[in-house]
Amino acid sequence: MVRGLGRAGIAAIHHTGRGGMFLASLVGGMGMMVRRPRLLVQQIHAVGVMTLPIILVAGLFVGMMLGLQGFNTLVGFGAESSLGLAVGLFLTRELGPVLTALLFAGRAGSALTAEIGLMRATQQLDAMEMMAVDPLPRVVVPRFLAGVIVMPLLAALFSVVGLFGGYLVGAVLLGVDGGTFWSSMHEGVDVVHDVLAGVFKSFVFGFVVTWVAVFEGYSATPTTDGVSRATTRAVVTGSLAVLGLDYVLTAIMFSEV
């Protein structure tokens, strides 16, 4: 039992170490993106545009939920005029970056892992190596960069749609004054500490989730079973990393204010 735990621990450390080395070689392969921007554009399409619908729908629903819950809670204190502030803070600080990252891990991250893992299992990566093409800069780097670029944009769109969802429920359905909704938001939401902190968070999340996804795919056991396990692991690791990092980043960025 103890030995089993020890072995699992060593395996986990080994896996993490390989992930770190992998990240280093990814950064080393970034030069190619300057010469081949098309590869990046294609991946932004695959990773970003294809994830957009789920992000927009989820953002709208979450915003509407915030409007409803916020109103019901605040009206008890007679503070429903602060609804805009509450919705704005929740979305820009927390829910925008975190939920976008979780949805991204489930939709785009798993797809990335499965895609790269299948390329490994069907020897496509080996074939590239034999054609004297390094698969790291050709296949992995554009996907990784696309994830890092796309995540803050998706999170911003999530927040914007969410704000309108909150406005829709709070102001249109429940009768909070629309002007008050927007002005209380503008009054209380700070660009640096709320909006940009959220953007920074989603940037970190994009980095970690995509890194985990492409690494798990690249190092997957080259069998169908291996790929499906790698996909599961990528989503689980990515999601847990997002939630853990969210706490750490929140503690660092919002504590001294």
Partner: peptide, 8 residues
């Protein structure tokens, strides 16, 4: 978000 939602 930076110009209209938040303040500087």
């Amino acid at each position: 978000l930076t110009l209209f939602v938040g303040n500087w």
